[in-house]
């Protein structure tokens, strides 16, 4: 990736580094969960930072992290689109799939016992197995600590949609968690 000569402004680059590079691990983490592939995640984050630098003049805040994430998400969606033609397509729910009422998969009666704790690898696997768009919403909330408003801005959906997706995501994760717990018993 090469920055055009007109972009070659050391002062702008300095401000950009200072503002954006502290979120590199966050961006990489999000890309890993969205794309579920280390090499693709690396490419996406690189592309994200290049685009962010290009548009940095128009950045007016408020927060850098959601701004970067919105760019990164668009990069990742382009990657999904590319994969659609590839043999290992990423599963996505049909249009409006996340509008399915929650009670269609009403949670079974909660267990009396305590939930089992898993190691980091297992938890990562469980989160990564969530279907989109629930995985994205879940990661933005639980791993990136974004507010509902910020998640809505990143994903370009209303706050109400964030709320229902998060409810679905947590219900799905809970089922997967209990199933995993059952398996390792």
């Amino acid at each position: 990736m090469v920055v055009k000569a007109s972009q070659d402004d050391p002062e702008k680059a300095r401000r950009f580094r200072e503002a954006a590079l502290p979120y590199l691990d966050d961006a990489y983490t999000l890309a890993r969960y969205l794309l579920r592939d280390a090499a693709d995640a690396e490419d996406a984050v690189q592309e994200c930072y290049l685009r962010a630098y290009k548009h940095f003049d128009s950045y007016r805040g408020p927060a850098m992290k959601p701004w970067l994430f919105a760019i990164l998400r668009n990069v990742c969606r382009a990657e999904y689109a590319r994969r659609k033609t590839a043999p290992t397509a990423v599963e996505e729910l049909p249009e409006g799939g996340d509008q399915t009422p929650l009670w269609n998969e009403a949670p079974e009666t909660p267990e009396k016992q305590l939930l089992r704790r898993f190691d980091g690898d297992t938890v990562r696997k469980l989160v990564a197995a969530l279907a989109e768009p629930f995985r994205e919403t879940f990661v933005l909330r639980e791993i990136q600590n974004l507010s509902y408003r910020e998640i809505a801005d990143v994903a370009a959906v209303p706050v109400g949609t964030v709320m229902s997706r998060l409810a679905r995501a947590r219900a799905m994760l809970r089922s997967a968690w209990l199933a995993e717990q059952e398996q390792v018993k």
Binding site: V3, D8, D25, R32, A41, E42, V45, Y49, L50
Partner: peptide, 16 residues
């Protein structure tokens, strides 16, 4: 996840 050092370096290299 922690961003690979190589990724950090590539981004650094692309900036003035």
């Amino acid at each position: 996840y922690k961003a690979p050092l190589e990724l950090r370096r590539k981004i650094e290299k692309a900036l003035p």
